[in-house]
Design a protein around this nucleic acid. Structure first.
Lengths: 335, 335
DNA sequence: TTGTAAGCGTTATCAT
DNA sequence: ATGATAACGCTTACAA
C-alpha cells in the first residue's frame, strides 16, 4: 500500500480508504489508486486488515468436500456473505481432519461466526462446541435441537411426508422407506414417513441401511444395500422413499442393473435434490432442500447473532418442495 | 496470548515459543501454557502471525467443489503440507466466482504458493496468470505445457493406452472412445486411444460429447449423451473407453436403463478412479490417477519453487495404474 | 530458560 | 479531501 502511495505521491491512508471503499476520496483518486494497484499486482494484506479492524468481517465455513449437497450451499454462501460485507473462509473436514481442527483453523482467522455445513456432529457435540467457541455458531442441515447455537434445517418430517403423499396419490400402497440411521436428520424423516403411512392406514416397511456420514460415499453404498434387500424379496414394494439423493441414485442404478425399471417397476422419491438427481440419466423425483434458501438463512442467522449477541439462538426451518421428475409412476393395476 | 502470560506470570514471548513449538521452553512451561490456552479457548491469531513472520507458511489451494476427483487431492494436501510446515487455505471456484477472485483471495492471505487443482484454465490463461501472480503457481491435473508455472498431471496418453490395451487383450476390436473435447486433458487422452488402436491396426471410433468443465455436472451429462449416440446405432461397439469417470458412470447408468448390461453387452473403462467408481453398484475398471501422488507432487513442486525461486518450473508426470473391477469382460464369440 | 524491544501492513482517530 | 499517528497481536533478534 505504501508503494502505491509513494508512486502516486499521496498518503497510505488515502490508498487504504480507496481499497476498502470507504468515503473520503475523490473519484479521480480512486481511479488512479485502483489502476496502480492492478499494475503492481497489489492485494490488501488480509491478515494485517483483520488484525487492525475493530471487528471481524469474515465467516468461517466448515464443510465436507465429498458431500454433494453441501457444495451448492457453499457456492451460495459467497455472494450472500458479500452482500452483508463479509468474506468467506473455507475449512474442510476430511477423513484425516475432524471438525475440531477445522474449527480451530477458523478461530485462528478470527471469524465473526462459524457456519457448520451438514455437520456430522450430533446435537450434544454441537452444544459442547458452541460452549467452547466464543463466537456465534450456525449449524446447517443438522438435526434439530441445540440451545447454544443457531440451527438451519429443512423440515424433514414435512418433506418426507410430501414425498410419501405423492406416492400414495399415485395409487401406491406398498411404500418402503430406507432408514439411514447414522444420518443426523434420519429420525425426523422417518417420522414423516411413519405418520403419513399411518394416516392412510398403510403398513410401514422400513429397510435399514448402514453407512456413515463422514465417509466419502455419502450414503451411496447404502443405496445398493437397500436395493439388494428389496431385490431379495419375493414381492418388492411398488415404491420407495429414500431420504437421501445419494442413496436414491445408487438404489436406482442397482435396480436398473438387475433389470428393474424405474419408474415402471418401482417408483422412487429422494431427498435433497443434489445435482446428480437432475441428470437426464436419473431424473429423480425428490424433496428439494433449496441450497440458496439454506445459505440465506444461515447468513441471516450469523448476521443476527453478530449484531445482537444477546439475542437467543434460533432454529430456522426452510421450506422444502417436491420436484417432480421421472422416477414416479402411477401404480399399475394388474391386467 | 498476553492473557495466558499474565495468568501464568510469564512473558508473552514465552507463550509464543510454546504456541509455535519453538525451542526455548521447559516441558513444564509448555504443559501449563497449553493447558491455560485450552481453558481460555485461545487460538493464535493467524493474521498477526503471517504479518510478523519473515516468510509465509501457507499454501493457497484453488478448487472446484463440484468436481469429485479434486476432493481426494484436497484431502491429501492437508497432511502433506503440514509435513513441510505449511498450512492450507482453500478458495473455491463456483458458477459465480471465477479463478481470478479465488486467486486474489489467496494473494490477500500472502500464501507462499498457489495450487490450482484441476484448473479449468487452458495453458494460455495459466501462463498469463503465472505472469501476474508473483508467487509460485502449481497447476494440478491440467493440460501439459506452461513455462511460468509448475504442472502436475498424469500421463493421459499412457493411461488411456493401458486401458485400451486391456480391452484389446480381452478380445475387443470395436472399441469406441468418448471425446470430451472441452476437458483440459482431452487431447492427450484421445491421442493415447488413437495410437493404441493404430498399433493394433484397429479402426478408431470417436464419439464426440459436449459438456463444460466448470459446470456442476463434471461431464456426467456427457456420459448420457454418448450413451444415446451408441444406443442409436445398429451395431454398437463391444467396448468403450471413457476418459472420465463421471461420464463413465452416467454412461453405465444410461445403458443399464436401456437394458444393456455392463460388462455382458459392453465393456467399459474409465479414467480417474473417483469414489463413485468404487461403489459396488458401479465397479468400474478405470485408469487410476492416484490423488495422494498428485498431491505429493504438487506439494513437492511448491516447496521446491519456494525454496529455490530461481529454479525452472517443472512438469511432474504421475504414474497411472489400471484398476481392474467388474466393468470389463472378454469379448463373447458368437455362438 | 526467560525477558526486552522493534516492527510487520493495515485501519481508526484525530487533525488539517 | 487528505495526512499524521497510534495501535492491533504476534514473531524475531538479542540481551540477561
Amino acid at each position: 500500500m505504501a508503494d502505491i502511495a509513494q508512486q502516486l505521491g499521496i498518503s497510505r491512508q488515502l490508498v487504504s480508504i480507496v481499497m476498502r471503499d470507504a468515503p473520503g476520496a475523490s473519484a479521480e483518486t480512486r481511479r488512479r489508486v485502483r489502476e496502480t494497484a492492478d499494475e503492481l499486482g497489489f492485494a490488501p494484506h488480509t491478515g494485517a486488515r483483520t488484525l487492525r479492524r475493530t471487528r471481524s468481517w469474515t465467516f468461517g465455513v466448515v464443510f465436507v468436500p465429498s458431500h454433494p449437497a453441501e457444495h451448492e450451499i457453499v457456492q451460495s454462501l459467497y455472494p450472500l456473505a458479500a452482500a452483508h460485507g463479509y468474506d468467506v473462509v473455507l475449512s474442510a473436514v476430511t477423513g484425516t481432519r475432524g471438525v475440531q481442527p477445522a474449527v480451530d483453523e477458523l478461530l485462528g482467522h478470527r471469524c465473526a461466526a462459524v457456519l457448520l455445513i451438514g455437520s456430522a456432529l450430533d446435537p450434544a457435540e454441537l452444544e459442547d462446541l458452541s460452549g467452547r467457541v466464543q463466537i456465534p455458531l450456525v449449524a446447517v442441515g443438522t438435526a434439530a435441537g441445540g440451545t447454544g447455537h443457531d440451527v438451519v434445517r429443512s423440515d424433514g418430517r414435512a418433506g418426507v411426508a410430501a414425498g410419501v403423499e405423492h406416492l400414495v396419490s399415485l395409487g401406491h400402497r406398498e411404500i418402503a422407506f430406507v432408514d439411514l440411521a447414522t444420518m443426523p436428520a434420519a429420525a425426523l424423516r422417518r417420522a414423516g414417513y411413519e405418520q403419513t403411512m399411518q394416516r392412510h392406514e398403510l403398513g410401514t416397511d422400513v429397510v435399514l441401511a448402514s453407512g456413515h456420514y463422514t465417509d466419502d460415499a455419502y450414503f451411496e453404498e447404502s443405496g445398493s444395500e437397500a436395493a439388494h434387500t428389496l431385490l431379495a424379496r419375493d414381492e418388492p414394494p411398488t415404491a420407495v422413499m429414500v431420504p437421501n439423493d445419494g442413496s436414491a441414485v445408487t438404489l436406482l442404478l442397482t435396480l436398473a442393473r438387475h433389470g428393474l425399471q424405474v419408474p415402471r417397476d418401482i417408483s422412487l422419491v429422494g431427498y435433497d435434490d443434489i445435482p446428480a438427481a437432475r441428470l437426464s440419466a436419473v431424473e429423480l423425483t425428490t424433496v428439494r432442500q433449496d441450497p440458496e434458501l439454506m445459505a440465506r438463512a444461515a447468513v441471516d442467522a450469523a448476521v443476527r447473532r453478530i449484531d445482537h449477541p444477546e439475542s437467543d439462538p434460533l432454529e430456522s426451518i426452510v421450506d422444502t418442495s417436491l420436484v417432480l421428475r421421472g422416477s414416479c409412476a402411477a401404480l399399475r393395476t394388474d391386467g
